[in-house]
Design a protein around this nucleic acid. Structure first.
Lengths: 336, 336
DNA sequence: CTGAAAGCGCTAACAG
DNA sequence: CTGTTAGCGCTTTCAG
């Protein structure tokens, strides 16, 4: 079929193992023979078969990336960072959409392990039950998570400081004079969103007594935000500001508010989380908490590759990235 | 290290090849022995090594997906469709970001071929020069493109009817009474965008004589749209409507218009292309040409898998998917 | 510095 | 229906 090392060896008049050495590090091969072999390989247009190489070495030079849904712009950004980092290290990335479904995620993990990936980057394990998490923890492949781990010693993690971000949002809204604030977010027990919620609620509670803050949980998506906000507006509660679990939900919230005939920030202020590129395209442009998404993906594979290098998959790193408030035009100062 | 077929064979008291048969189709194995082997395999928690399998069979059960940039929501949607289809056929998807860069794309192709992927899904080949395209055409792996092929006999294709979409946009704007229309789009010679432009311009030209239509080319991104529109507005030309190459650019255009103090659709109408989920979140909601993105990805993988099945990679299919106008609130009828 | 040889884990004839 | 036997293409000791 295609050109193999054997062909190159035959043509070069050397042994196949010499070809192997020449083509890899090149160490321990006479410089002249190495150059000769290289030129023959080029002439024959030799292409290594990485899958054979993988069988022999036990490594596949590929990584798995399991995100909830690549259509979520946050994950797309992370994926890009991850792919760039993987690629520049010679690895490639297998994309998986876990849909926040424990069984589906485990299927992906199994499939990736059968392909002998050298590491797995995972969105979150909060959709997995106890048994699944343990199974994952001792699967023999390094894993890094994109949210805070429940069990810090089981997995490495790389994520933004979600709790601080939630606190930032709360402080900002309080500073503007808001006292009736809702938090519309995704499902309970969703790693990162839960941390944001905690930071937000805690700050509200400790900063002042006469604050009404309530949380509504829904689907983590554009439609989830839309639905939640529609429900809220129908209740006619006196709310002056909304903190969304993320920008995607904020977009849905904005849409619902505008469709209901209210104005932003005139009637309602809203702040998001993520700082997606499109956060500046809404009307009004969205005030939001910025987190370094691309960087998260990049860092996560760097950590992963470091783990994949060592024999012991220990020395788990836990990187937390800074967040910051990006003030645009979706919030207003409340008159006394 | 891990459990292999040999272990299962030893434990079951049969030959390794019987294990192989039992674990695969199961044909030609006595039902009782098969069940026995399966139970042993389960007990031992046996996991097949797909990379060894790949070496033996010559197939890897994985596909490559090369898109410009997964952060482009259009590609994210396509990728999701592709991944779902691949997964349900037992294949997995290797993600690559080609960045519209010919050399980078070819590097990806080479890397994918070294991993012996069974097929490649590619955004476009218009960034490749003649030599690269030919090289690609005879690389021995089935390829399907996501835009109209310059050489229809070299690659299979799956894409929306971009030319019809461009025509649709033109007809719509003309029907509303617009006569001074600009088309702001991405780089020249960008497969799909070029087709849209052609349909748009052709329709304008043949429907009426006294129409001014001009095209401005820029970067295919949010910022590209923003920049182009800013430039246009600075020129003070009398334009009443803008057709954007796609929604992402339309978002940038909208942002620029609003920032310059104009109103949509009061001062300027704009229509996009793609119908991204977020097209309904802008203010005003964007009128756009819908194309089936998820479906495109799904179909493309199906075509690819069909090609991967046959020995001869011929019988190239060319699927064109319908588009349609989605009227929202970013366009107005011109008073006489 | 180079060659010979064993083997990674699985499949696929070919016999029996 | 099952066992034997070659490999798939490459790496990696171990000798020379």
């Amino acid at each position: 079929m295609s050109i193999t090392m054997k062909d190159v060896a035959l043509e070069s008049g050397v042994n196949i193992s010499t070809v192997s050495r020449a083509l890899n590090d090149g160490r321990g091969v006479h410089d002249a023979t190495r150059r000769h072999i290289l030129s023959i390989a080029a002439k024959l247009n030799y292409r290594p078969n990485r899958i054979a190489r993988g069988l022999a070495t036990g490594r596949s030079t590929s990584l798995g990336l399991i995100v909830s849904d690549i259509r979520n712009p946050f994950f797309a950004e992370v994926a890009r960072g991850a792919e760039d980092a993987a690629r520049s290290a010679g690895y490639d990335l297998v994309l998986c959409n876990g849909d926040l479904d424990g069984d589906k995620q485990m299927q992906y993990v199994r499939s990736l392990m059968e392909k002998r990936v050298d590491g797995i980057l995972m969105n979150s394990v909060s959709a997995l039950n106890r048994r699944q998490q343990e199974q994952l923890a001792r699967c023999g492949v390094p894993i890094v998570l994109l949210n805070r781990a429940a069990a810090p010693k089981a997995f490495a993690t790389v994520h933004a400081d979600n709790e601080a971000g939630g606190a930032l949002a709360a402080e900002f809204l309080l500073r503007l004079g808001h006292r009736n604030i809702m938090h519309l977010t995704g499902p309970r027990r969703h790693g990162n969103l839960t941390d944001r919620e905690r930071g937000f609620v805690r700050t509200l509670e400790q900063k002042t007594q006469r604050v009404e803050a309530a949380v509504m949980h829904g689907e983590n998506s554009f439609y989830g935000g839309f639905t939640l906000a529609s429900k809220l507006l129908a209740q006619q509660r006196r709310v002056t500001a909304i903190f969304a679990g993320n920008d995607l939900m904020a977009f849905g919230i904005i849409r619902a508010i505008l469709e209901a005939g209210y104005r932003i920030p005139g009637d309602l202020s809203v702040v998001g989380f993520d700082n997606l590129e499109l956060a500046s395209v809404t009307h009004p442009p969205l005030t939001t908490i910025h987190q370094p998404k691309y960087e998260t993906g990049r860092l996560a594979v760097e950590v992963l590759l470091r783990l994949a290098g060592t024999e012991k998959h220990q020395a788990l790193e836990h990187k937390v990235l800074d967040v910051q408030l990006v003030e645009r035009q979706s919030c207003r100062r409340l008159s006394e």
